[in-house]
Design a protein around this nucleic acid. Structure first.
Lengths: 194, 194
DNA sequence: ATCGCTTATTGATAAATGTTAAGTAATGAG
DNA sequence: CTCATTACTTAACATTTATCAATAAGCGAT
């Protein structure tokens, strides 16, 4: 049950001791989500971070009745409405399950307690925040300097699981275009290939 | 000289002691940059973070001969080619001074030393990373869900110093449009106002 | 296998944005 | 102060992208 998440912690903070891990594990809770269900919704305050043991989730906004997807997160990663989790203010975004999911969650209070209790979790928290910054920062850069077609190619090559497991119309809003336009770009791209 | 940066640390980590601050201050160096000079350039590995005591700097990419601005950072903030600083890999971006600047810098090695020596700096590092994440994350969201005109309005209302101190053609690429288009949007926006 | 629903494709048209080129305004160095 | 340079504006035109509407294809539940 906890093998994957334990490996994750060990990869981020190899210096973690068994005692520290045990202390953490006591605070973890397991949670299941069926395809289509919401993990958090706009207006909620995000009170936990979740490690995805299995499944795939999506972060998205509702803008003028339309869904705009901003991230897809598969098993083996941590996930939260992180802005809301950090600020403990209501989130503007939603998270739903694109597949049946198994999550291992840690509450805000538990995390604060771990921060106080054991410095190694400060390091973990810093590394997670740094990683998230790198990811979002590179995504923002792609939106600014690449054309829609190039952005789609990037998704294809650097996050192929998205193309394999996420409906195309969600990918369209993820790269900032309409589903119709993405469909046309794809046709244009494949004509020359075969 | 160090009053502003000291206040900054105290605001982020109020629990910092005088001894810890002194230890930090020993490692700080002051640096001056004239308007137009580069702080870091693409290909460099970023080896320091800089607190801006005075002035204004810009982060930008060179894409097909054109500058694409991705951030403007005024006095009172920390600045680095943060992706490169974290990974110690060559950066794809540049930083230049839009005004004469006074910077207070801390090297990568010094920061690692402080991390090891005193846990409070781990907390500081985490808070900085979290703040950067929140900022970039909200900027990415704006690019995805707002129109260019709305993005410009946001800059006007939430970062007015940019409109006051940054040339318009740099703001244009910052919000993802051409200078000509921004000029047209501005005309359209002011016609109705007066 | 079939039905019903969701997703993807396609075409016609409209709107938004980019490009090129020219002119005007602002700015800074001497 | 003057000139040269840089920044901003404007216009005509080209290209990209969105919208609307219709059809086709895929898919899950029964």
């Amino acid at each position: 049950m906890f093998a994957q998440i334990k490996a994750y912690y060990r990869s981020q903070i190899p210096q973690i001791t068994d005692a520290e891990w045990d202390r953490l594990q006591q605070k973890l809770t397991v949670q299941h989500l069926k395809k289509g269900e919401l993990l958090t919704r706009a207006g909620d305050i995000c009170r936990q971070v979740s490690f995805i043991n299995k499944g795939l989730l999506r972060m998205f906004y509702l803008v003028e009745g339309k869904e705009v997807s901003v991230g897809f997160v598969p098993e083996g990663n941590y996930l939260a409405q992180y802005d809301s989790f950090l600020t403990q203010q209501p989130s503007a975004g939603n998270i739903d399950a694109l597949e049946d999911c198994e999550l291992i969650s840690l509450s805000y209070e538990s995390m604060q307690a771990l921060y106080k209790e054991m410095p190694v979790f400060q390091i973990f928290g810093r590394k997670v925040a740094e990683m998230l910054f790198l990811m979002v920062s590179s995504q923002k850069k792609m939106l600014l300097i690449l054309s829609p077609e190039e952005r789609y190619r990037r998704v294809l090559e650097s996050q192929p699981f998205i193309v394999q497991r996420v409906p195309q119309y969600m990918i369209a809003s993820y790269i900032g275009i309409t589903p119709e336009h993405l469909s046309r770009l794809r046709r244009k791209m494949t004509v020359r290939v075969g």
